[in-house]
Computed example of a mutant assay.
Amino acid sequence: MFEKIYSPVHKLEFALFNNLFVKRDDLIDPYISGNKWRKLKYAIQKLQTEQKSHIVTFGGAYSNHLLATAAAAARLNLKSTAFVRGEAVKNEILMLCTLYGMKLIFTDRESYKNKIELYKTHFGNDKAAYFIDEGGASAEAISGCAEIINELPLAYDHIFCAVGTGTTAAGLLKGIQQNNLETKLHMIPVLKGGLFIKDEIAKYVSISEHLILHTDYHFGGYAKTTPELTGFMKTFIAKTGLLIDPVYTAKMFYSIVDLEQKGIIKKEDKILAIHTGGLLGILGMKEKLE
């Protein structure tokens, strides 16, 4: 299931940009979506090499990572369990996870902070179990995301990526460095206090002048939004026909427009936005988008 993908680069006609492109990782799979597919690719290969058959992972109640993991496990006839942060709830994402056979263990937020301890306590004696961190973060995920750069049809002046844990951005930076590109990589943290992401990236790849961090586009924090952002999102989708979500990709595209207006990037520059998928996250924001 990880051999072939469909992720073209499309040119967008939007605002004042002459050369705005988007890498359509959202088209890879409807449920193992975007960067989640790339993060799981080599982790699951490693799991199979080690002859494990039970994925144990972590995430919030609207986690696209949980859904992607559940779908991948079901297709590969693997068992899956997820520790879900917070009180027991029901929603569309978790319903799909359970339909794919994933067992959910709701965990209070304090206990959730120590994921390794949770894993050891519940599955330390399960020889078939395989640990995958929240969001799929791992060295294997970095390798999977680095392959995005190898797939690009040309070099770009700027690449933009919305980031949560920084895993995808670390892979992109690794790919840029491996290919000796001059491309600037713009990270858009979607949560408050995003400066820590640089430290997370440094665990996997050396920080270089290619990397630029913009911390002012979180719109209140993770899974938070404002009327300004949702208004931009609605206009963008209607004008481009490209569906984006308020948690990640809307914040990224908003930043591109804003940085052009501030003169930090130029409308003539070749700009690539990475569409990381995760569109089912819109379901958790439907009241704010009506």
Rank of each mutant, 00 (worst) to 15 (best):
H10P: 00
G281Y: 05
G194L: 07
L242M: 15
S63Y: 05
G164V: 05
T168A: 09
S80W: 03
T183G: 08
T57A: 02
A162C: 08
G221Q: 12
N64W: 03
D157E: 12
T240Y: 00
A128F: 01
L211E: 11
Q51V: 01
K174F: 03
V163W: 00
M187N: 06
K203Y: 14
L154Y: 13
M187I: 15
G241W: 09
G135F: 08
T226L: 09
T69D: 02
S138F: 09
Q51P: 01
L173W: 02
F131Y: 13
P153C: 11
E228D: 05
L154V: 15
T225D: 10
L12R: 04
M285V: 03
D126L: 09
A88S: 13
H10L: 13
K41D: 04
L172M: 06
F123H: 07
F196S: 11
Y254D: 04
L67Y: 13
D26M: 08
I201M: 05
C161L: 02
L118M: 12
A139N: 09
T168V: 09
L191I: 08
K203A: 14
L66D: 05
L66F: 06
F14M: 09
K184M: 13
V56H: 02
P30T: 14
I207S: 07
V22S: 10
Y100I: 03
K270Q: 10
L283W: 15
K39Y: 08
G135D: 07
A169G: 15
M285D: 14
H218A: 10
